[in-house]
């Protein structure tokens, strides 16, 4: 196994799938000549040519819709959003066209495409450039959502997303692109809908997805020093959601904290908490708590931004609360 960055893992996945299937193409702002705003598509233009790696104008609604149209007639587009913040402009095509097409055509037309790019906050980019987009997407039946946290997951989930016959949003993280990790060589595909226990523990479950997996692991390490063994369950895929894995960890620890970057209201944690109380009520020894971004638009000022983001202290405090160890 080679140790590579998250960025290179995505790059490999894109290259391998484009090699495998010539109906796959990549379109988005700066993806070709500039190698992608975050260099994820580095070298792909040289390798696959300008018909398959395409610089778009700044027309998110237009090129997302173009992708859906191309998918309606058999291509397998990968549409890159420079960041998912800008995909809000394209949400009409994502939800009203891509997600609903199969249903409203009575099964005639499926949409095998990928929307991808970084989601969530980076550093001091303020309100319009710092938001987690998961909830906007996962809310709509008809679209699937994955959120890889490690290089291996990035590669495996990207490949699965490209091969999937439905629209899949692959939400990456700006602050994850330089993360290094071991990635299996060759055709490494991770089926959608499988969560992954990133750390085992018997006292409390920290359930999370995407970038905050790393925060959960930090918190777990610190809890260990206080004699608390936290299990970290990385959902990896938000829809399909691995409910079995969620129930299994709750049955093991009887206590759960959901950690996410997004806002709390109708967030992913809200869905997971609802699922837990519906299907594992008797296994719970405490209410499910959530640690999220503060329920405000992201402020610019450094000190306020730090307060707004979820941090290890708040995860630790939530874990102790469900353990009644405050």
């Amino acid at each position: 196994m080679a140790e590579i960055t998250y960025r290179d893992a995505l790059n490999q996945a894109l290259a391998e799938e484009m090699e495998r299937d010539d109906s796959v193409f990549l379109m988005g702002e700066e993806v070709a000549e500039y190698d992608g705003a975050y260099k994820v598509s580095k070298g792909l233009l040289d390798r696959f040519g300008e018909l398959r790696v395409v610089d778009s104008p700044i027309s998110e609604l237009g090129f997302a819709g173009l992708g859906v149209g191309a998918a309606m007639v058999g291509l397998r587009p990968i549409i890159e959003f420079m960041t998912f913040n800008f995909s809000l402009l394209a949400l009409d095509q994502v939800i009203n066209s891509a997600a609903k097409m199969l249903y409203m055509t009575g099964g005639q037309i499926n949409i095998p495409m990928v929307f991808r790019g970084p989601s969530g906050a980076a550093l001091q980019l303020a309100a319009q450039h710092s938001q987690a987009a998961e909830t906007w997407y996962v809310h709509a039946p008809g679209i699937k959502v994955v959120t890889p946290a490690t290089p291996a997951d990035a590669k495996g989930l990207m490949k699965a997303a490209i091969r999937d016959d439905d629209p899949v949003a692959v939400m990456e993280g700006e602050l994850l692109y330089n993360v290094r990790g071991e990635v299996p060589e060759g055709d490494h595909v991770i089926p959608l809908g499988l969560a992954d226990v990133k750390r085992e523990g018997g006292d409390v479950s920290i359930i999370t997805h995407g970038k905050t997996v790393h925060l959960a692991l930090q918190a777990a390490k610190r809890l260990e020093k206080e004699g608390i063994e936290a299990e970290v369950l990385d959902l990896r895929s938000l829809r399909p959601l691995d409910v079995d894995a969620i129930l299994a960890t709750v049955r093991k620890t009887n206590r759960a904290v959901y950690l996410e970057e997004g806002w709390p209201y109708v967030g992913v944690g809200a869905q997971v908490a609802a699922t837990i109380q519906e299907e594992a009520f008797d296994d719970l020894d405490a209410p499910v708590l959530r640690v999220t971004q503060a329920d405000v638009p992201m402020p610019y000022a450094k000190n306020l931004e730090q307060l707004a983001k979820p941090n290890a202290e708040r995860v630790i405090a939530a874990c102790k609360r469900v353990l009644y160890r405050t």
């Binding site: 700044i58 913040n85 800008f86 809000l88 402009l89 001091q124 303020a126 309100a127 319009q128 450039h129 402020p299 610019y300 000022a301 450094k302 000190n303 306020l304």
Partner: peptide
């Protein structure tokens, strides 16, 4: 990013607003 900033430090470089001068921003989405 200070409290004396025109947007109280909440907006930063991309979100300068000054309603008294009828300067209406400062918008980050192209």
């Amino acid at each position: 990013g200070r409290s004396a900033g025109s947007s109280a430090g909440k907006g930063g470089s991309m979100h300068i607003f000054g309603t008294e001068q009828a300067f209406m921003g400062g918008h980050g989405i192209v």
